[in-house]
Design a binder for these strands. Structure first.
Length: 714
DNA sequence: AGCACGCCGACT
DNA sequence: GTCGGCGTGCTC
């Protein structure tokens, strides 16, 4: 009886490949096991997803070369969860499985190129082309991989160049295998652990925590949302983690990328010690592998980390937490694209675990979902105890309003440090000719260049290209003037003017380019050697920034002008995050300085009135047919040739239109600017039911062959 | 993805 | 006349 295996490979393809199973491997080739298979002219690691008794006629199959696992590495639940995730985001299943493994668990053949004696002679003989000579010169010192040589070589068709060299006998191309780890096959040890943990749960929180803890023991999937301050959420999380562990269940704890210097992680390390695995993005490959093995062997009860921790080999999951659920870093845009929030949902569901989302500035989609399910827990209402002033900027002539000057003065007098956020880099938004209104734009990106005074450059914020500014307009010779839009540099200058004796420092991308400078500034601030620290959102992302008694947010309305249906939410979250650095005593002051004070996001956010914001925002979303009321997908076509792009995108749109009537199509539309010389055309699809989208989108995407990326919003 | 094939424009 | 651009197709 012959046996065949359906194998998934780590390629950007939405399909599997069929292989013949040699007699010797029949027992070991099972669903979830890794196999080494020949593919084209190389060897790749794949995952068996199905055993088959028959194969389609007329298909000449290759045979599996080796089986890497005695028992399946991936459980059926894990396979199912990753497949669903890949389908939800139109990304490749094989690539998702690949990122679930440390590199040494997915070996593949590598090509090494070695120079021959004849090759060395040819190098001296001088009758070779410059391209060939470049390669041989490199190889004269040592051998290299073909990938490395390809990157070094200027040849456009490198592969044919290489085979020509091999034909002439100048180089020898060798195929070798990656070294890979033998997997340890250890049994699961689920040892219930008792942990000493102290909690400070107030009555309300304790009630919620107890109720949620009840869900763990039920052993069924449960979807819950915890709305509240970081401190209150944290207490609940730790309570639940303790409950989970003591009942022998494991925990997956997801946090945003930036949270790694945060105190919660330290607490984890201290309280859980060996029982916890803390993962982060700057971990070395060997360290990552070490942690992966510990988790895989069942030695770890809690895995905490950013979105990629979602794929940790944790068995017997009882609790999945997604903290700061609204954070953008949960969505991976590069291939394989996926959203760790949706991933957490799918995985928790698959494992019958308790799923907890938590935040104080929720995403509309998740909040809506929790409300619909009736599983929303609000730990506190309006949380602001301090005084907040919303200053109408339109009344002012200067950059720093009288109100802010007053507050800064008070705070300086009390010897307290202050924070000022202004979310725009550079000095002025743009420069223009005073006569003909000509605006200098980036050659590659089409967007207006921003004037940076510190470096005296015009800078493109898309591709970072910097030009020296010119004084006369190249079109009419008129004088170039700076426009009114204000950047951090201008804020710094203005604050300096008002408080010449104070120690004022600016913290932005341009300064932090040198990493040490950034750390230095932060520690100076912590040590009280800076009176006023001025920064962009980059500063707000520094989690170890100390709390202060004065926080000013300047011009938050700039976020509102983005052509994104989540602009209001972004504004809400940004203000919320920045004011989060306010000490929570009555003497603390917040100042919002804006030219759009009546906007609901600016009105509600400073006071933590999310419900109020949510009501307004959902009104708009419902009216405009945006998530969560529809499912929405954005398809982005990218390329240099605008003509070809336009043709492809229109072809795509009409294919979708032919496919279904229940889909609303926006576009194709040229996006506002090119990026690094690339044109981008956007098509947005909306539908009431996800299935309507999938049914027509999948075939349409397959049919139109060109570089495109898909982004799923809800 | 990676690579081979195949068909049109500027050059030793 | 070729070299070399990239559009298209295929990988069990």
């Amino acid at each position: 009886m012959t046996l065949f295996a359906e194998v998934i490979l780590s390629l950007p393809l939405d399909r599997s490949f069929l292989y013949a199973v040699p007699e010797a491997f029949k027992k070991k080739v099972v669903k979830g096991a890794r196999v080494l298979v020949p593919f084209k002219d190389r060897l790749l690691t794949g995952v068996v997803i199905e055993r088959k008794k028959t194969s389609p006629p007329g298909l000449k199959l290759k045979a599996i070369r080796d089986v890497l696992d005695e028992t399946p590495l991936f459980s059926p639940q894990f396979l199912s969860f990753t497949r669903q995730l890949s389908r939800a985001y139109y990304s490749s299943w094989g690539e998702l499985l690949r990122i679930a493994l440390p590199a040494s668990f997915a070996p593949q053949s590598k090509t090494r190129v070695v120079i021959t004696d004849e090759g060395r002679l040819a190098l001296n003989a001088n009758k070779i082309s410059p391209l060939e000579k470049d390669i041989l010169l490199l190889l004269a010192k040592k051998s290299y991989s073909d990938v490395f040589l390809k990157r070094k070589s200027k040849a456009s068709r490198f592969s044919s160049l290489l085979s020509r060299l091999a034909e002439k006998g100048w180089v020898c191309v060798e195929k070798g295998m990656d070294s890979f780890h033998e997997r340890r096959e250890t049994g699961l040890q689920v040892t219930p652990v008792q942990l000493e943990m102290d909690f400070s749960l107030d009555k309300e929180s304790l009630r919620t925590a107890d109720m949620l803890a009840g869900e763990i023991s039920k052993d069924t999937f449960s979807y819950q949302y915890v709305f509240g301050s970081a401190a209150k959420r944290e207490a609940i999380y730790l309570y639940l983690i303790k409950k989970s562990i003591s009942s022998g269940k494991r925990v997956l704890f997801l946090v945003p990328e930036i949270a790694f210097t945060g105190s919660l992680m330290e607490k984890f390390q201290n309280r859980l010690g060996e029982h916890a695995a803390l993962l982060h993005s700057q971990m070395s490959e060997s360290r990552r592998e070490h942690e992966w093995l510990r988790i895989n062997d069942g030695h770890v009860s809690v895995v905490a980390g950013p979105r990629s921790a979602l794929f940790s080999p944790v068995e017997n999951l009882g609790l999945v937490i997604v903290d700061e659920e609204q954070d953008d870093s949960y969505y991976q845009k590069e291939n394989p694209a996926y959203d760790a929030r949706q991933g957490a949902y799918l995985r928790a569901k698959q494992e019958n675990a308790l799923l907890i989302f938590g935040s104080m500035a929720p995403s509309v989609e998740t909040y809506y979902e929790a409300q619909k399910r009736g599983t929303l827990h609000i730990l506190e209402k309006e949380s602001t105890k301090h005084r907040i002033d919303i200053v109408d900027d339109r009344q002012n002539r200067g950059i720093v309003s009288p109100k802010l000057q007053e507050r800064l003065r008070e705070n300086l007098d009390r010897k307290n440090p202050s924070l000022i956020f202004c979310n725009r880099r550079g000095y002025a938004g743009y420069v223009a000719c005073s006569r003909c209104r000509y605006i200098p734009r980036c050659q590659n990106c089409d967007i207006a260049l921003t004037y940076h005074k510190r470096e005296n450059k015009l800078v493109c914020h898309y591709c970072d290209q910097a030009l020296s500014p010119w004084h006369a307009c190249p079109e009419c010779g008129g004088q170039m003037v700076r426009k009114k839009e204000v950047g951090v540099e201008a804020v710094e200058e203005a604050v300096h003017r008002h408080f010449p004796k104070s120690r004022i420092v600016c913290f932005d991308t341009d300064i932090v380019k040198k990493k040490k400078d950034g750390q230095h500034i932060l520690s100076e601030f912590k040590n009280g050697r800076i009176d006023i620290l001025i920064g962009t959102q980059l500063l707000a992302h520094q989690k170890d920034l100390p709390e202060v008694s004065l926080v000013a947010v300047l011009f938050p309305e700039t976020t509102l002008s983005l052509s994104d249906f989540r602009a209001s939410l972004r504004t809400y979250q940004m203000i919320n995050q920045m004011l989060g650095f306010l000490r929570s005593d009555k003497d603390s002051n917040g100042v919002i300085q804006t030219s759009f004070p009546e906007h609901f996001s600016i009105q509600s956010s400073p006071f933590g009135r999310y419900e109020e914001f949510y009501k307004e925002e959902t009104k708009f979303r419902r009216l405009m047919n945006y998530p969560p009321y529809v499912h929405m997908v954005e398809v982005l076509f990218q390329g240099e040739n605008l003509r070809a792009l336009a043709r492809k995108s229109r072809e795509f749109t009409s294919s979708v239109r032919r496919g279904a009537a229940a889909i609303e199509i926006l576009g194709p539309a040229l996006t506002a600017a090119r990026v690094r010389g690339m044109n981008r055309i956007q098509v947005i699809l909306k539908a009431k039911r996800r299935k309507d989208l999938d049914d027509v989108l999948r075939p349409s995407l397959q049919k139109i062959k060109t570089r495109k990326s898909v982004r799923v919003y809800y």
